[in-house]
Each structure stands twice: as C-alpha cells, then as structure tokens.
Write a protein that binds this DNA or RNA. Structure first.
Lengths: 138, 138
DNA sequence: GTAAAAATATTGACTTAGTCCATTTTTGAC
DNA sequence: GTCAAAAATGGACTAAGTCAATATTTTTAC
C-alpha cells in the first residue's frame, strides 16, 4: 500500500492519526462496514469517535481514495481497491462479499441503451447469489 | 394492470384491502419509497399501519410480484415492472430514478468472469449520473 | 519555533428507515 | 356461521447515520 500519509497529502487532505488509521483499517478489512472499521481503528490507536470515522470515510470516498458500496439490506461497505472497475458478488444468505473482475474488461463496461438525457458517470454492478458454504447448508 | 385480487390469489396470498391498496400505490408511483406508498395508500383507503406497508411490500417482493431496489444513500424503492431485466439510472444530485432497458437484452445480461463457487442468481445494474435538470443548474 | 487560521475530532442529541412483539382483526375453508 | 390461520394494528425499540456546538490538532505564515 502507498504510504497513508503521502496518500492523504496528495489529495490535499490534512494528515491525522485518525485518517491514517482508517486507511489502514480499510486495507485490513476489505468490504468492512463503518462499524468494522471503527473497531479496527480502536484496536490500533485506542479510540476514535464515530463521527471521525464517518467523516474520514466520507472525505476519502469523495476524493476517490476509497470506494463505498451499499448493497440492499446491508450497511455501507468500504474498500480501497479503486479505479479497476471491478464489481461485487454478494451472498443473499450470509452477506459475504467478494470482488469480481469486470466481465467485459474496460471502463465503463456497460452502456445504457437510452440515457434519457442523463450524463452517465458510472455503472455499478452487483451480482446476487449464494456462496458455496450457504449452498451446502441449504 | 392485472386485477390485484387475482394477482394475490395466484401467488397464494390472502386478499386484503391493504395489500390491494399497496399494489395500486406501487403502480401509481413507480420507484416510490415505503413512505410514498404508505401516503398513497392512506389517500386511497384512509389509513394503514406502517407495519402493514412493510409486511405487504416484503411479502410481495418475496413472491416476485414487486421488485425492491435499494440505491446508496436512499431508502428502498419499489416497482411493479418485473421480469424484463431492466436496470436503473439514478441522478446523484436529485435522486431521480428512471428505467433503462438492458444494454445487452437477455437475462442474465452479464456473466461474472470468475464466480468463486457462488451460484449467481441475478445481476443488478445501477447507472449513476446527472439528470438533464441538475446538469443545467450546475 | 511560534502564533493565528483553517481543518479536523469529540461529544451527545437527534433523525430516518425499518424491525419486533403482543394483541386484535380479517380472511379462507368447512 | 364457526374456527384456525393469516394479516393488521400500535407502540416500543434498534441500527445506521447526521447535525451542531465545542475542543483539539494540523497547517501556514512569519
């Protein structure tokens, strides 16, 4: 991983212990919830306020350092794998989330047939299914 | 629209005034939130409990009569256009949601390159962009 | 290195979307 | 019409996240 300090500076952000710890936590738990990340940060630097976690995550998503995915029926998840146009495959039963490379392979990998005058920025794809473990149980 | 009563019976559900009104409300406001639907139902049959709205919507989604979409940063939306594999285009600025026919045209229109042993049931696509009105304002 | 300004963090109340549960009412089958 | 099962009601509750005032830290300018 790039040094978190320079990563922040490069995006014009102040370097704070909280933000560095949040970056580390996202790297450590990919597809983690805000809460997972808060827990992970606490175990690293002792304590952090809920608000600081949300602020940091929000700012970092805004600057394009992190990506937020928000699947139906789940709190938002965060990941640091960005810019490669990958998608997500989520288990309906247990919520397990894995990365999936884009089926087509380039960005944007999809084109809407009729865009209603919208300017389309991004195509987000979520595959829903059942993971091997949950399939065995059923 | 199919008669709501038979639609419910066909799916093995009891026919109640609340469910019929919910079906009508979803037809009347496509891409409405649970709250929009509750309001619409109230104006039709006078009153309904919040719980009945959630129960009805949940059951109907489960039976495949309605579809739930849950975009980031928005409460769940419901629609009755199902089975044609269409997708959604949402304005980041104002939240306006429109239907988009599948770019490829058949179900499932996408195939994950590596499915990690998952059984994939559905590919959900959300296009994010800016609608013509919001684009003019910016 | 210091001080002022700007940015960020803390705390705690608050909001929104939705769930849980005990009770009452309605529905469908005989 | 009766009765069991299904659904609706009402109200408390929870989870995820936002707001806003204050305190602290970081950055910038000297």
């Amino acid at each position: 991983m790039t040094d978190p300090g320079s990563l922040l500076r490069d995006h014009g952000l102040s370097v704070t212990a909280q933000r560095i710890a949040v970056l580390r936590a996202v790297a450590a738990c990919p597809h983690g919830t805000a809460d997972d990340i808060a827990e992970s940060v606490k175990s690293e630097i002792g304590s952090i306020s809920k608000q600081a976690v949300y602020n940091a995550l929000g700012t970092l998503v805004e600057k394009g350092v992190l990506r937020r995915i928000q699947p139906a029926g789940s709190p938002a998840l965060f990941e640091n794998r960005i810019g490669d146009n990958h998608h997500h495959l989520i288990c309906r039963a247990c919520g397990k989330t894995v990365d999936i490379d884009c089926a087509v392979g380039k960005t944007p990998c999809l084109h809407a047939s009729h865009h209603h005058g919208f300017h389309i920025e991004e195509a987000e794809v979520i595959y829903w299914g059942t993971c091997p473990e949950c399939r065995t149980q059923a």
